[in-house]
Simulated scan of single mutants.
Amino acid sequence: MLVGHCALLHITILADFQRKLNMAVRKRGKSWSARINWRDANGQLHQMEKGGFKTKVEAEQYSVEQQYLHTKGVDIESNPVFADYFHEWWTTFKKPHIRHETQKRYETNDKIIHQYLGDVKIKRIKRLNWQQFINDVCKTRSTTTVRLLNRQFRACVKNAVADGLITLDFTQGVNINGNDANTRKPVFLSYAEAQTLLRTAMDDRDPTVPSTYIIIAIILTGARVGEISALKWHNLDIKKHTIAIHHSYNSDIKELGPTKNTASYRTIRINTKLIDLLQEIKIDSKDGYIFQEAATGLPPANRTINSKLQVIMRHAKLDKKDFTIHSLRHVHVAILHHKSVDWMAISKRLGHQNLSMTLSVYAYYIDEDKRKSDKEIEKKLDDLFI
């Protein structure tokens, strides 16, 4: 009786769905096809047909599934190529509002998804397919790179869910384990080495060479090179001893852009010596940049700053492979850590989004603190027996 009741219920539901969508199944040769007709909110007629079903039951089941998706607000008619959908999504929603560096990352991922998934349509992609894709890109890319890649694609997939193209996020719960063998590790300096670098830069400074002053400013502020290069005189408050970091300068396209994230939009305190140093290079100009080359009135290119840094490193007799202008932020942290500045204060000063990000980057210093603490604990316990 129960089986008969379920069968009757199935027939009733199917008949109801067929009335709503005007569904029909028919045999075409050796296989079955399902045709679905419906009208949208404007009364426009739509039709969709799919064939290749082995049995009439399979065709009817497909029709019921489509009806269910339709009632859930899913666009059962549209099924774009995912790579094309990603391109349209990021160029429309992201490109007008992101930094040049972020745009280049989207462009790279755009090429990757076209290369790997080609003409695969979005409704064909399942979590298994996505995990296989991620496994493939993990073979030649670092874990961090793949995480950033998946984050961009996941935002796109969430948009597809909101658009009613699909019901589930197939990027959710993916396992990421990239190839970190060739990942460049951060280069840290000791406090003594940081002092040597700063003194050498001070000795090498020339008011006509803004690159050296940028290097000194990063050491004393921990700001990113783009943030320092973007500074204009109105960002400096001499009375309050602060600089307002509200932009980032891209030396490739010679334009100001937004900071890396909302946490990077900040105002930080600076010391008197840095204010005095900035006064040495003050030039009145149309654009008002603090650090500007005489010929252009614009900040120097990153490669120019980096070249100057390598000269200073040689003069300081500091042999550090892969030490770049970004490494100067680590120098600032080395100084503050040595002076026992709180990690939360350091995190805010660097413009990190949260403390955990700071602690993960500077785990080297955390481990160093733990080693010192362990020795102190050991000594204090031994003192009990004296």
Rank of each mutant, 00 (worst) to 15 (best):
T262S: 13
I281V: 14
G173R: 00
K254F: 06
A301T: 07
A217R: 00
A194P: 08
Y191S: 03
Q292F: 06
Y265M: 04
N271V: 06
A244N: 12
N302M: 02
S211C: 14
A230K: 07
I270A: 05
M202G: 00
L256Q: 11
Y249F: 15
S190F: 05
S248F: 02
R205W: 09
P299C: 08
D276A: 14
K260D: 13
T262D: 13
I228M: 08
L298C: 02
K185Q: 15
L236N: 02
G297H: 07
P186F: 10
I305V: 15
Y213W: 10
T304S: 15
V209I: 15
I215E: 09
Q195I: 14
A217T: 15
D180F: 12
L198E: 13
R266C: 03
Y249I: 09
R303N: 14
I218T: 10
I219H: 08
S229Q: 13
D287N: 14
T212L: 10
I214L: 12
R205G: 03
G222K: 01
Y265F: 13
Q279Y: 08
H246S: 13
Q292P: 07
I218L: 08
V209S: 12
G222D: 04
I305A: 11
Y191H: 13
R184Y: 06
I268H: 07
S264Y: 06
A223R: 01
D203G: 00
I176S: 00
D180P: 11
I238D: 13
L278N: 03
P186R: 05
A223G: 12
Y213T: 07
D206H: 10
A294Y: 09
D180G: 10
G173Y: 00
A294P: 01
E227L: 04
I216K: 04
S264P: 08
S190Q: 06
L236P: 01
R224V: 08
A192H: 11
L197R: 00
A223C: 15
I218C: 09
H241W: 00
K240C: 06
K185W: 04
A294M: 06
K282V: 03
I218E: 13
I238V: 15
L298D: 05
D180T: 10
R266D: 04
A201K: 04
I281S: 03
Y249A: 09
P207G: 11
A244E: 09
P258T: 14
D287V: 02
T262A: 13
I245M: 09
N235E: 05
N302K: 05
L274W: 03
H234T: 10
W233L: 08
S190D: 08
E193M: 08
G257Y: 06
Y213Q: 07
L298R: 12
G288H: 06
Q292D: 05
T212M: 10
L256R: 09
W233T: 08
A194C: 12
H246N: 15
A263K: 02
I283V: 15
R303V: 11
Y289R: 01
D203I: 12
L298G: 02
D204Y: 12
A201R: 02
H247I: 01
T221H: 01
S229G: 00
T208C: 06
I290W: 04
L274F: 05
S285C: 11
R199C: 04
N179D: 14
A244H: 12
L236Y: 00
K260Q: 11
I228R: 01
I305Q: 09
I275P: 05
I245Y: 05
T304D: 07
I215M: 11
N271P: 00
H241C: 14
E280N: 10
